[in-house]
Write a protein that binds this DNA or RNA. Sequence first.
DNA 1: GAAAGCTGTCGAAGCGCTTCGACAACCTAT
DNA 2: ATAGGTTGTCGAAGCGCTTCGACAGCTTTC
Lengths: 337, 337
Amino acid sequence: MVTLAEVAQHAGVSASTVSYVLSGKRSISTTTRQRVEESIRELGYHPNAGARALASNRSNIIALMIPLRTDMYVPVMMEIAIAVATSARTHGYDILLLTGEEGPDAVRRVTGSGLADAMILMDVELDDERLPLLRGTDQPSVLIGLPADTTGLTCVDLDFRATGALCVEHLANLGHRDIAVIGEAPAVYERHTGFAERTLDGLRTRARELELRLLHRPCEGGYDAMAATLARVFDERPGTTGFVVQNESAVEPLLALLRQQGRAVPEDVSVVAVCPEQVATQASVRLTSVAVPAQEMGRHAVEQLVAKLDGRGSDEVVLLAPELTVRASSGPAPVRS
Amino acid sequence: MVTLAEVAQHAGVSASTVSYVLSGKRSISTTTRQRVEESIRELGYHPNAGARALASNRSNIIALMIPLRTDMYVPVMMEIAIAVATSARTHGYDILLLTGEEGPDAVRRVTGSGLADAMILMDVELDDERLPLLRGTDQPSVLIGLPADTTGLTCVDLDFRATGALCVEHLANLGHRDIAVIGEAPAVYERHTGFAERTLDGLRTRARELELRLLHRPCEGGYDAMAATLARVFDERPGTTGFVVQNESAVEPLLALLRQQGRAVPEDVSVVAVCPEQVATQASVRLTSVAVPAQEMGRHAVEQLVAKLDGRGSDEVVLLAPELTVRASSGPAPVRS
DNA sequence: GAAAGCTGTCGAAGCGCTTCGACAACCTAT
DNA sequence: ATAGGTTGTCGAAGCGCTTCGACAGCTTTC
C-alpha cells in the first residue's frame, strides 16, 4: 500500500502539504499542487480510509437501513437504494447497507462506532423504535417515510394523501361515482408504515368532498386473493366502475380477472394504480397511474443529508407532489342503464 | 464518544487488556474479563471503527457491487443483496454497497483505500473488465455469476446449464415434443452475462439428446413484446405445446395471452419458468418452475469469502444444483390429432 | 529447590492520516 | 526602509486502536 508519506517523499514535499493538496483546506501553489498530483497518479495512491476516518472523525460513509422483508414493494426499495448509492457517490460518500434485522441496535452500533457519518432510514413505521435514538444523537439522519411525530426529524416521502386525492379526482372527472380501492396486504396496515393509511385518508376525504362512494379492501398479492376480493367488491357494490389499486402484485391479477369476467378496461371499468412506472407500463393494459418517485426520493434524501453534514440544511419534511399519468386503463364512466 | 482508554480506567486495567478482552486473542482471567465487560456495558462503549481499521488493517467490511440497471431481475438482486447483508452480519461484517456505475474504478478505490476487506461482485459479464484487477490483488473476492475464464477466481452461481436440461426433461417426460423457449431480452444476451446462454445451452443439448424440437426467442418484458413473440412462435411451430420462460416480466403476459387465445394451461400448453419462487407462486397460474436460489447464493458467497478471510477456503466454482418444483402450469402433452 | 514453563497483565510503539501553530518568503502600504 | 499582511510550506501532535515484547507471579518437573 502506498502511503501519504511516500507520496510526499516522491514529490519532495512534506506529508501535510500532500494532505492539503488532497483536501484543499489550505492554498497550495500551482507548481507544488501539480507535482503532488503527478506523484499521486504515478504511485497509484489511495488515501487509507481507516486512517482518514480516525484523524478527521469523518468516515464519508452514509448508512442506509433497508427493510428486511423481501416480499413487498421490492422494486421501489431497490430503486431507492440504487438512487441513494449513486447519488451519495457524487457527493463523495459511500453507502453502508444495513438490513432492518438488527433493529435499533444497528443505530446504536453505527453511531457509537463512527462507522458512518449519517443515516438514511427506509420503511419507517409510525411509531418507530429507532426514532428516540435518532433524536438523542447529533448524527444527522433522514427518513424515507413519515412517522407519526416528525419533530426534530427530517423526512422525505411521496405525498400519499395528495396521491389518494388525485386518483379520486381523476376518476370523478371521468364520471365515475362508485369506486373500489384495492389496498395493500393487511399486514402492511398492521405494521403502521403509514403510507397506506395516508393514501386511504386522501382517497376518502376527497371522495367525501366529491360525493363519491368509496369501498376499501386490503388485498394480499396474487391471483387467488385478488379473485376473492374482487368477488366481494362486486357483490357489495355491483355498480363499481372505478378501481384504485395500491398493491403492485394485485395489479396484473386484477386486470386478468376483469378481462375474464368480460369487463373491458377502460370501457366498462377504469383502473388507476399507485405503483412504480415500470409496473404501469409493462402491465397487460398500460395503466393510468401515480408513480412512486423512488429515484427522486433517494436523491432527495441524500441531498438533505449532505446539506446537514455540511452544516447547511435543517429539519424539514419534504412531501413530493404526486403526478398522475393518464394511460390506457382509465376512461369515461359507462352510461348508466 | 467513549474510548478504550476510558473503559480501561473505569475497570482499573490497562488499555491493552481491554483490547484483549474484546478480541479474545490472549487469555484473560475470568474476574478481569467480567469487570471489563461490565465497564463496557456501563459506559456504552463501542470501538471506533476507523481506529480499529487503522491499527488492525482490517475494516470488517465487505464490498458488494450490484448492477446499476434497475430494470432487470430486480427481485433476485434484492434478495441476494439482503441475504449477503444479513449473512455478513452473522460473521461480524458490514456491507458496503457499490453500484456498477463506477465500474473497475470502484475495485481500485476499495482495494486501494482499505475501505473493505473483500468484495462480492454481482452481474459478472463473461469477459468482465473487473476481473484482471481482482486477479492482480490479494484482496479476496467472490463472484456471483460465471465469467468465461474462472482461473484464480471464486464463483457462486446457479447451474443454469443443468437448469435448462431439467426444464427440457420435465417437459419431455410429460410427452411434449415441440418446445419454445421465451428468453431474456436481447440486451441480456448482448451483455454476455452468461447465465442466459448457459441455460440455452443446457436446453439445447438435452433437447437434442431427447430428440425434441426447440425454438428459442429472446423477448423483452411486457405484454406487447410477448404478444409479438408468441405470434411468431405459433406461426413457425404451430405444434408447440411446451414453453420454457426465463424472463420474469414475460411470465404473466404469456399466461394472459394463452388464456386469451383459448389455450388452456396446462391442458393444451405447459409452461415451465426459471424465476424467483415468489413470481412462480403469485402468477395467475401457479407455475412449475426452477427457482433462482437467491438467498442461498448470497449466503454461499459470504461464507466463501469469510473462509478466505480466515485463511481457510480456496478458489473454486460452486454451481448450485437447480430444483424443479412441479405446480399447476405443466401437465401431459395433449394427444396429437 | 532450582530450572523451566504457564498465565495474565502492562507499557509502548505505531498504524496513516488531519490539523494546528509556526514561520520563512514575499508583497504591499506607508 | 519598515511595519504589517499574505501566501505557501513544514513539523509535530494526536486521533483510538492493536499488538509485540516484557515480566511478575504462579505452577510444574526432575
